[in-house]
């Protein structure tokens, strides 16, 4: 029994797509940005370890890769304008 369990654990790790299916569905909208309060300072874009944000033509952040977000909370802890909030925390 122990060997079977080990095999079951190893298999999803080999195939990335299957692993993603077994985990809970990822939030398509993890971060909300209030554009009216944002001053486009670029701190969230540069500090994000997963590179979730992109800058638009005016420099404002846009959530470009929402499925990369791990809810590490660095962006909203460092937002000086209180313009970012998480939908999960």
């Amino acid at each position: 029994m122990a060997e079977e369990n080990q095999i079951q654990k190893v298999e999803p790790a080999e195939d990335g797509e299957e692993k993603a299916k077994k985990e809970k569905p990822k939030n398509p909208n993890p971060i909300v940005i209030f554009r009216r309060w944002c001053k486009a300072c670029g701190i969230c874009i540069n500090l994000c370890p997963k590179d979730v944000f992109d800058a638009d033509e005016d420099g404002y952040p846009v959530v470009a890769r929402p499925f990369e977000c791990t809810q590490c909370s660095i962006c909203w802890l460092h937002c000086p304008d209180f313009a970012i909030k998480s939908t999960e925390k």
């Binding site: 309060w37 944002c38 001053k39 486009a40 670029g42 802890l77 937002c79 000086p80 304008d81 209180f82």
Partner: peptide, 16 residues
């Protein structure tokens, strides 16, 4: 809001 501090000023982070 939005507040008067310059874009990127750390005072907002300290206030948070």
């Amino acid at each position: 809001f939005p507040h008067v501090w310059c874009p990127g000023c750390g005072i907002g982070i300290i206030m948070g």
